[in-house]
């Protein structure tokens, strides 16, 4: 399977998927830590976290998948929602809770 197929499968077979650097308990980047914090504050404890540092192909592939050059990236119901900044804005406005 190509990286694209792996990603496609992950985002379509899990309700909430977060591509991040490190793991939820040990994030390796401030933006990824922020993304995990927002999900947990929104009551989401059960999500698929994909550590891109473990797989260079996924790390590159995810940037192409949504035409988005940075990590973290959040997907809900197969749809790309945004990165750390957009998650923060949607959390503050309450929009994120509505789609979770």
């Amino acid at each position: 399977m190509s990286a694209r197929e792996v990603i496609d499968n992950q985002v379509k077979s899990n309700k909430v998927v977060l591509y991040m650097k490190g793991s939820p308990d040990f994030p390796q980047c401030g933006f990824s830590a922020n993304a995990v914090k927002i999900l947990r504050a929104s009551g989401v404890n059960d999500f698929l976290a994909v550590d891109v540092l473990q797989d260079p192909e996924i790390r590159q592939g995810i940037k192409e998948y949504a035409n988005w050059p940075t990590i973290p990236q959040l997907y809900i119901n197969g749809e790309f929602i945004g990165g750390s900044d957009i998650m923060t804005e949607m959390y503050q406005s309450g929009e994120l809770k509505d789609i979770l």
Binding site: C29, W68, G82, S84, D85, E89
Partner: peptide, 27 residues
């Protein structure tokens, strides 16, 4: 959409976003 707005900025930054700029937070 916010996604499309941020993509416009990323597009303007082009390869620099991958090479030179480690982290950019934007509004």
């Amino acid at each position: 959409t916010k996604i499309a707005q941020h993509q416009l900025v990323y597009q303007a930054l082009g390869d620099r976003m991958r090479a030179e700029i480690h982290a950019l937070s934007m509004k």
